[in-house]
């Protein structure tokens, strides 16, 4: 690990200033991803700005029934929060499906959004990676790509976003609140993470000097009936091959409301808008669930080792929706 200067920010203003004025500075929250990447020399910041002392560690209920979750709230605190468990069970569930108890106690909400891919070639200095060294090439494409993207990948990068929590946030239409040298702004969740295209090293919409202050979750009554399902290579403590976050409201056998997002399939949490479109008003049954899944995965492309994920994703969508529909 390279040496770095360390500063603890006591307030937001200082944090923004430190971040924008210090060359090659990074924000340090729980450290669960950043410290690992620094130890691997993948991240080599010259300075760390510790944000864990900022007053962003609260979960607030909004008058409309929604929530605002501070950036430095630990993952566990979100999952155990009674309102989250009651109104947004898929969010609580996504969190407890991620990582381990210890990591969830450390990891912050903002850090979860900022975590980087687990691509084996991203982690290996001896390999070519366009994220680590833009323009170098991608060794994952012809290598081990079992964990890699089937949707939205490019010739530059086939990495996936590893978060579980973000899949639920995508389904919930969350908003990311950020502050930077030019003040505050709010980013729609689906715009926050980017597809790789030919700049896979740019992973989010955050601008230089900006930091996340919190997540807004709008009210969504029918999310009380929601699920997160994660398929992985062992029973627990592994990254998703495919995951599905869904909320479903059925009225008279018809889909009245649907939210669907996929994890483990793309460079970003994948909001399944095509499937949602197909399902709107459709029969809440296995045939239309399968049709929706087929529609969503129609543009999917498999590689040598991850082809199975296309069918796996479809089946998992059908299974989760079936369960929510009470079938």
């Amino acid at each position: 690990m390279k040496s770095f200067a360390y500063a603890r920010a006591a307030d937001l203003e200082t944090a923004v200033q430190l971040l924008s004025k210090t060359p090659n500075a990074k924000l340090l929250g729980g450290g669960t991803n950043l410290v690992d990447l620094m130890r691997e020399n993948i991240e080599q910041p010259d300075a760390l700005v510790d944000v864990t002392g900022l007053p962003l560690d609260r979960i607030q209920e909004r008058p409309d029934g929604g929530l605002v979750i501070g950036a430095t709230v630990r993952n566990t605190a979100v999952a155990v929060h009674p309102v989250v468990r009651d109104r947004y069970p898929l969010l609580a569930q996504a969190i407890v499906f991620g990582a381990s108890g210890q990591i969830r106690n450390m990891a912050t909400v903002a850090g979860n959004l900022m975590q980087r891919t687990r691509c084996l070639y991203f982690y290996d200095h001896a390999a070519r990676c366009n994220k680590r060294a833009p323009g170098a090439g991608c060794d994952a494409i012809g290598g081990f790509n079992r964990m890699h993207a089937i949707l939205g990948a490019s010739d530059s990068c086939i990495a996936t976003h590893p978060s579980d929590m973000c899949v639920a946030l995508a389904a919930l239409n969350a908003k990311v609140k950020v502050v930077g040298p030019n003040g505050e702004r709010t980013i729609a969740f689906e715009d926050f993470h980017r597809l790789p295209e030919d700049t896979p090293h740019i992973e989010t919409d955050l601008q230089p000097g900006e930091l996340i202050t919190g997540i807004e979750i709008p009210p969504l009554g029918f999310a009380r009936r929601s699920l997160y399902r994660k398929i992985r290579d062992r029973a627990s403590y592994a990254f998703a091959l495919v995951s599905v976050a869904a909320a479903l409201e059925v009225d008279n056998g018809k889909v009245r409301n649907i939210r669907l997002a996929l994890g483990g399939v793309a460079h970003k949490p994948w909001r399944a808008t095509e499937a949602e479109r197909v399902l709107a008003g459709a029969n809440a049954g296995p045939e239309s669930f399968r049709q929706a899944a087929e529609a969503e995965l129609a543009p999917a492309r498999g590689l040598a080792h991850n082809d199975f994920k296309i069918e796996l994703a479809k089946r998992t969508i059908v299974g989760v929706l079936g369960e929510l529909a009470g079938g």
């Binding site: 084996l120 081990f144 290579d233």
Partner: peptide, 29 residues
Amino acid sequence: LAEETLLDTRRGRIMNPSLAEYHVPVHLD
């Protein structure tokens, strides 16, 4: 069910030298 050391035959290099990516059984398995 899960364990496998991944040797990239283009380079002869082990690509999952980590307990996160080499899956030994956990409690729940």
